[in-house]
């Protein structure tokens, strides 16, 4: 059994355990098999869709992160860091603020794809991980500015508080509709990225040699950009902006499954899902007055981890 398969099986088990725990645990401890109406509502109508949404969003961000890292040959690449999440949020905010809420998911995906295209064009020849991260910082800040502008110009200021809340990132109160939407986007993104897996493997040799061993790099690039956009757009449309999952998941998985970018894809998705379900359980169990937003928690944990990985890379002269 390969290391990648072994890791995947362990992460599937961890995901199932985390999802089960998410049904049990919460501000009210309940027995999920108790057969009264209140329990059924709490467990199956509130906690189950919420936990599934968290898993799908985490898996989508983990998969997008692993694919982007392979394409850009950079362990700091991630939908959040590179600005895909910010642009997806911008697309959704524009849809909400100007009264086309129905179009929000489509707008999120389209804007994420645009950001992925821009960052790939600017970052393809970036020397070292840090310069790519800087391009992402620029794009993210730009998206942030445009979101503020959209909120500023929004015809309905009453929606402002909702929108701000939503850009913080959360899976609170999500329904099965959200699960279906993000799930469909994840499946679409996973199919696109699966076709790019071999090209990502070839990119282990760098761009020049990858083309020379027979990889079609423009196909690989297109598939990853569209796949990462579908994953990020779907995830952001239902949960808002949640950062760092796409960095943390592949980083954790490398130690177990090795460095081959194709063999990292599925374990990274599984790890991202398990990670975000666990983070959401933690958020619900914290005794705060108003619940801590999942996106805020992810940034509080993920930010320092990101800085640590970046510092370690810089100390090694930029090698992966």
């Amino acid at each position: 059994m390969s290391a990648s398969l072994r890791t995947s099986l362990a992460l599937i088990a961890l995901s199932i355990a985390a999802l089960a725990a998410a049904l049990w645990l919460g501000p009210v401890a309940v027995d999920p098999f108790a057969n009264d109406a209140a329990t059924r509502t709490i467990v199956w109508d509130i906690r189950l869709p919420r936990a599934l949404t968290a898993w799908i969003v985490g898996a989508a961000l983990g998969l997008a992160g692993a694919a982007l890292q392979g394409l850009l040959r950079n362990p700091l690449a991630d939908a959040g860091v590179l600005g895909l999440s910010g642009f997806a949020a911008l697309g959704a905010v524009i849809a909400f603020a100007f009264g086309f809420a129905m179009l929000a998911p489509l707008m999120a995906i389209a804007f994420a794809a645009a950001a992925a295209l821009i960052v790939t064009m600017l970052g393809w020849r970036a020397r070292g991980p840090a310069s790519l991260a800087l391009i992402g910082v620029g794009l993210s800040s730009f998206a942030g500015g445009l979101i503020a502008l959209a909120l500023n110009l929004a015809p309905n200021p009453g929606a402002l508080a909702d929108l701000v809340n939503w850009t913080l990132g959360s899976v609170e109160g999500r329904s099965m509709n959200d699960v279906m939407l993000a799930g469909a986007c994840l499946v679409l993104g996973a199919i696109l990225i699966a076709f790019a897996a071999r090209g990502l493997q070839a990119l282990t040799l760098g761009e020049e040699a990858a083309a020379a061993i027979g990889a079609n790099l423009s196909n690989t690039g297109t598939l990853v950009i569209l796949g990462a956009a579908a994953c990020t757009g779907g995830a952001t449309a239902v949960a808002g902006v949640i950062g760092f999952v796409g960095i943390a998941a592949p980083h954790l998985v490398r130690a177990l499954a090795g460095h081959d970018p194709a063999r990292l894809l599925w374990p990274s998705a599984l790890a991202g899902g398990a990670l975000l379900v666990c983070a959401d359980i933690a958020v619900r169990l914290l005794p705060t007055d108003s619940e801590l937003k999942l996106g805020v928690a992810a940034a509080l944990i993920g930010g320092p981890v990101f800085a640590l990985i970046a510092a370690r890379l810089a100390a090694r002269g930029g090698d992966a």
Binding site: R73, L203, T204, L205, G206, E208, A209, A211, A212, I213, G214, A215, N216, L217, H259, D260, P261, A320
Partner: peptide, 19 residues
């Protein structure tokens, strides 16, 4: 790219192993 790779193997001046 595939057909070319079956006819000629190319080793660039500074070969890389990214991962």
């Amino acid at each position: 790219p595939r057909e070319r790779a079956l006819r000629a193997a190319y080793l660039p001046q500074r070969p890389q192993a990214i991962w």
